[in-house]
C-alpha cells in the first residue's frame, strides 16, 4: 500500500494525544495531591493541540474535505465512521478535563475515567479501520489493534515524560519508567507483527486472480500505458533497500533510542520516538501487499 503522509500524521499525532491523556489521568490517580492544576491544564491543552493537528492532516487525505461531516453516517458498519465520531468526542472530553482542573472542579477524576475510556475506544476504532480490511492479511489481525494502542500509549508516555521535565520535575522518574515499560512492551508486540508479516503466505495468487491453472503466467499489459489509480494507491514505489532503511529507522527511532533516552535525556525522548513512529507507520503501509497488485504488474 502507498503510505499517505496525511494518514501517517493523523494516526501518530492523535495516538500521542490519546496516550498523553491516559498518562495525565494515571498521574492524577496516583499523585493528585502533589501536582499543581497547571500541569493538567497544560497537558490537556497539549492533548487537544495534537488532536487538532492530526485532524488537519486527515483533511488532506480526502478528495472532498468539505463533505467530511457525512463520514459520521455509517457508524453501524464502518470503523472509519466510528473513528470520525470517537475523535471529536475524545477531544471534547480532553478539553473539559483541562477546564475542570483550571476551574478547580471536583469531578476531574470522573472526566478522566470517561476520557481514558474514549481514548481506548478511539485506539480501537483507528486500528480496526486497518484490521477490518480482510483482503490485507498483514493488517487483518488482532495484533494491529494491540500495536496501535500500545504504540500510542508509549508515544503519549514519552510525551508526558518530556512535558514533565518542564512542568512537573517530580514526575519525570515515574513517567520515564512507565514510558520505558510501554516501549519495551510495544517492541515485543510490534516485533511479533513484523515477524508474522515477513513470513505471511498471500491468500490470492495470479492463478486464482485469473482463474487459470498454470504455474507460469506473466502479465504483458495492464490496460494502461502510464499507470492508473491502481498503480498509485497500492504500491509504495520505493526500492527494497529503501524499505530496509525504514525498517532500521523504525527499530532504532521507535524502540532502541527511546528506551535509552527516556532514562538518560527524557526531554528528547518524545521527539525521537515520534520520528521512529512515523517510520513505523510508513512501514505498516509498505508491508501490506494488496491482492489487486496481482493485476498491476506491468505498466504497458
Amino acid at each position: 500500500m502507498h503510505p499517505a503522509l496525511s494518514v501517517l500524521l493523523l494516526t501518530t499525532l492523535i495516538g500521542a494525544g490519546q496516550g498523553l491523556f491516559i498518562a495525565l489521568f494515571v498521574s492524577e490517580l496516583l499523585a493528585a495531591g502533589t501536582l499543581s492544576p497547571s500541569f493538567f491544564v497544560g497537558g490537556s491543552a497539549l492533548v487537544v493541540v495534537f488532536c487538532i493537528l492530526g485532524l488537519i492532516a486527515s483533511f488532506f487525505h480526502l478528495g472532498h474535505p468539505e463533505r467530511a461531516w457525512r463520514a459520521a453516517a455509517m457508524w453501524r458498519s464502518s470503523w472509519l465512521s466510528r473513528e470520525v465520531i470517537a475523535l471529536p468526542a475524545f477531544m471534547g472530553v480532553a478539553a473539559l478535563y483541562g477546564l475542570a482542573h483550571w476551574s478547580g472542579a471536583t469531578y476531574t477524576l470522573a472526566l478522566g475515567v470517561l476520557g481514558t475510556l474514549l481514548s481506548i475506544v478511539l485506539f480501537v476504532c483507528t486500528a480496526m479501520i486497518y484490521a477490518a480490511v480482510k483482503v490485507l492479511k498483514e493488517w487483518a489481525h488482532p495484533l494491529t489493534v494491540v500495536n496501535f494502542t500500545l504504540l500510542g500509549c508509549a508515544s503519549g508516555a514519552c510525551l508526558a515524560t518530556s512535558y514533565a521535565v518542564f512542568a512537573a520535575p517530580a514526575l519525570v522518574v515515574p513517567l520515564s519508567q512507565a514510558a520505558f515499560s510501554l516501549i519495551a512492551l510495544s517492541l515485543v508486540t510490534r516485533g511479533a507483527a513484523l515477524l508474522r508479516n515477513a513470513t505471511l503466505k498471500p491468500a490470492s495468487t495470479l492463478q486464482s486472480a485469473l482463474g487459470i491453472r498454470h504455474p507460469h503466467i506473466v502479465q504483458k499489459s495492464q490496460g494502461a500505458m502510464g499507470g492508473s489509480f491502481n498503480t498509485r494507491e497500492f504500491f509504495h514505489g520505493k526500492s527494497p533497500s529503501f524499505v530496509r532503511g525504514v525498517l532500521t529507522l523504525l527499530l532504532f527511532g521507535g524502540f532502541v533510542l527511546p528506551l535509552i533516552l527516556v532514562l538518560t535525556a527524557p526531554a528528547l525522548a518524545f521527539v525521537v520516538h515520534y520520528g521512529g513512529l512515523l517510520a513505523e507507520r510508513w512501514y505498516f503501509f509498505a508491508e501490506a501487499q494488496h491482492p489487486q497488485n496481482l493485476y498491476y504488474q506491468t505498466v504497458s
Binding site: 474535505p65 464502518s78 472509519l80 489487486q292
Partner: peptide
C-alpha cells in the same frame, strides 16, 4: 468524500 477506503477493501 474521496477517502478511498472502499478501494482498499475491494480485492
Amino acid at each position: 468524500i474521496g477517502c478511498k477506503y472502499c478501494s482498499w477493501a475491494c480485492p
